[in-house]
């Protein structure tokens, strides 16, 4: 594995560890300096070695490469935990996860070989996929849904720089853990919306 994808993997594991461990240890109850120190210390987690392999190596081996979108989202979460600010509105988050869940459903269901079509193949240089993705990103911008548009821009920029091992654009946009996470959160979001609608018709 070359140095840059490995560095990205370490950063992703660090941010994920920071977002997760902050939640587990309820670190938001502490002072800013303590929260900052904790976030920095979490940077050690990817390098902890056990059985001849680092935590980042186990994440990569067992789970696979994290997508750029996952890394940006856990980065935002880690920043929110650090500053105790909310950078994303509930609606923006809900719609982002809904879009990710929908994309994941198409991507993963068509990759099982049950039909001759696989959406994953389009990530390897299909002009229609790139044009379609650009169209979706522009539409999201006009709908003032900045988060999903920003995530697409980050993923595409990382793809242009080939920051991951893969040269498939899909691998920069989504990964299985993000898909399952997005699926659960989007269902939760739409149930809440429905309940709100029923209570305040």
């Amino acid at each position: 594995m070359t140095a840059i994808p490995q560095l990205i993997e370490y950063i992703g594991t660090w941010l994920a560890a920071a977002a997760l461990l902050t939640f587990i240890f309820r670190i938001w109850k502490r002072t800013f300096s303590l929260r900052l120190a904790f976030t920095i210390i979490c940077g050690v987690v990817p390098f902890i070695r056990y059985g001849g392999e680092s935590v980042a190596g186990y994440v990569l081996g067992v789970y696979g490469s994290l997508s750029i979108v996952t890394i940006v989202l856990v980065g935002i979460k880690a920043a929110e935990n650090l500053t105790l600010e909310k950078y994303i509105t509930r609606d923006e988050r809900g719609i982002t996860y809904t879009l990710l869940a929908a994309a994941g459903l198409v991507l993963y269901s068509t990759s099982l070989g049950l039909t001759g079509f696989s959406a994953y193949r389009s990530g390897l240089g299909s002009p229609s996929f790139v044009v379609g993705l650009f169209g979706v990103a522009v539409l999201l911008t006009f709908l003032r849904l900045r988060l999903p548009a920003l995530l697409i821009a980050f993923a595409v920029a990382a793809f242009q720089l080939r920051l991951l091992e893969s040269v498939n654009l899909w691998d920069y946009l989504i990964d299985p853990l993000l898909f399952f996470f997005a699926l659960v959160l989007s269902v939760n979001y739409w149930i809440r919306q429905l309940v709100k609608l029923v209570r305040n018709p």
């Binding site: 522009v138 911008t141 821009a153 980050f154 595409v156 920029a157």
Partner: peptide, 12 residues
């Protein structure tokens, strides 16, 4: 909006 569109154009 123009700022975000600019970011998108740069990426693509």
């Amino acid at each position: 909006r123009r700022f975000w569109l600019g970011i998108l154009l740069l990426a693509f």
